[in-house]
């Protein structure tokens, strides 16, 4: 469900929650469109989150108690802002440290960091 300009979808599957949670941790509160745009800017268009994947994830996180929402009216239209709950903050931290550990393991496994004697 991702549109990934540079990466295959297999590569990033399973990271959407981590991305959303961490973004909300940094930015405080955000609404859907803002999240997609922010990811686009931060990754210089390398990762684009599709709307099709974003909203089901946001709803599931909210139902799970990781996110809370506030509504704002733009004219007659409702804008839903998402914000981390305490539980969500904890999950965000867990997810990020798990992912960074995973990245380190992958680096080691795939021999991506040139080690002494390898040259």
């Amino acid at each position: 469900m991702y549109i990934c300009l540079m990466y295959s979808s297999e590569l990033i599957k399973g990271t959407l929650k981590t991305i959303v949670l961490n973004l909300l941790k940094e930015e405080g509160r955000m609404y859907g469109y803002e999240i997609t745009q922010r990811v686009k800017v931060l990754t210089e268009d390398k990762i684009q989150i599709t709307e099709g994947a974003l909203y089901p994830t946001l709803h599931a996180l909210e139902k799970n108690g990781e996110l809370e929402t506030e509504k704002e009216y733009i004219g007659k239209r409702v804008r839903k802002y998402y914000r981390l709950t305490d539980q969500g903050l904890e999950t965000a931290n867990d997810r990020v440290s798990e992912f960074s550990d995973f990245v380190n393991t992958m680096k080691f496994l795939l021999d991506l960091e040139p080690r002494l004697g390898n040259a």
């Binding site: 549109i3 599709t50 709307e51 099709g52 909203y55 089901p56 709803h59 599931a60 139902k63």
Partner: peptide, 22 residues
């Protein structure tokens, strides 16, 4: 079409699935 692969209803189904089987 940016929101779906085949039809917009996918979003509803995906949301339901994620919530139901959380």
């Amino acid at each position: 079409p940016r929101f779906f692969n085949k039809e917009l209803k996918e979003l509803q189904v995906e949301t339901d699935n994620l919530i139901r089987f959380k």
